[in-house]
Amino acid sequence: MPHATVVKPANLKALWKLLPSISPKRKYLAGGTDLVTGANTGLNSAETWVDISDLKELRGIKETAAAVIIGAGVKISELEGSRLVGRWLPVLHAAIPHFASPSLRNMATIGGNAANASPCSDGACALCAEKAWVWLELKGKRRKLPLAALFKGPKKTALKKDELIIAFEIPKWKHEGAYLKLGPRSYFGISKVSVAAALEMDGGSVKTASIALASVAPVPLLARKTADYLAGRILNEENARTAAALVKAEVSPITDVRSEAAYRREMAGVLLARALGRIGRRGENL
């Protein structure tokens, strides 16, 4: 186990009060699934971990007339069982079985998943396709960003020092969703490519679309051109093929120990075509 001092404020107010008194070499500890493993392998050298797991302001899944609000401290396994997620967020719902392992889902939080800013994040990718916004707070001051704008590069975010993700606000819009992941094995692996597709349907046609991809760009990628192409078009094989060709041009994958660039690019298209086909077939069965 790594050695760090852990402080655990009781609420947000206490947190902002506490920060000036502790080591500037600090990091937030939520589920710990990235922070602890990173510390074990020497990736981060924070002296103090600010344990935010008690902050009630970060908890709960709620709804308003227009949106679903997910607290940043919500565990992935809580999302799994949430009625609201099941009803309003089909892409996120479909992504959860692909998210790490059951034991990690019991620990990891959705806020931590976004703050870690990994381009391969299943949670962030799915939420981007859901058109999520993110609420941030620093010393009592709040601001709101589209989630996709939070990500600036691998492990890089728009968060200022000490700024904390408070919640995700996802607009309620009637849509179909699919999440397809190509990993290194059947389950519990980091994706080579993932595709999240959210489609607002009008009969057999796409009214609006939101497409996000993981592991094929420096950040969870919103494929805007592909989504724009699909909007207003019939969801058939030919249009799905064209969308797949478009998405291959939108991604910018790399070759690393996990896969090869050319393969990832091609698979982005294959997975998108399959995701669209899956939603289309669901429509036929309605």
Binding site: T37, T41, P184, R185, S186, Y187, F188, G189, I190, V257, R258
Partner: peptide, 25 residues
Amino acid sequence: YENLAYKNGIMLNPNFTDYVLATTA
């Protein structure tokens, strides 16, 4: 699955995150 990688004499994936083993699944 198992694919230990070296680049320029340095091992790239000395961990079970990126050295992938079969699971029960």
